[in-house]
């Protein structure tokens, strides 16, 4: 079982490289059970969306 500390790194790295099959499963299982990491993942998605539209309206 991966910890939140390990999973949050993989969530970030998942934006920059293809995670291995094992990593993807580990992250998915962890996220299913962990609301805190789901929040973190949502924040990372937010950042990406926001930056793609930089400098904004």
């Amino acid at each position: 079982m991966k910890t939140c500390k390990e999973v949050h790194r993989l969530v970030s790295e998942g934006q920059d490289r293809n995670l291995s099959f094992i990593e993807r499963i580990a992250v998915r299982v962890h996220l299913m059970m962990c609301g805190a990491c789901r929040r973190f993942e949502a924040q990372m998605d937010f950042l990406r969306q926001a930056l793609r539209r930089f400098p904004g309206p």
Binding site: T3, C4, E6, A36, R39, F40
Partner: peptide, 10 residues
């Protein structure tokens, strides 16, 4: 390895 503080809802 758990969060000190739960990340907030953005």
């Amino acid at each position: 390895g758990h969060w000190q503080e739960k990340p907030s809802n953005w």
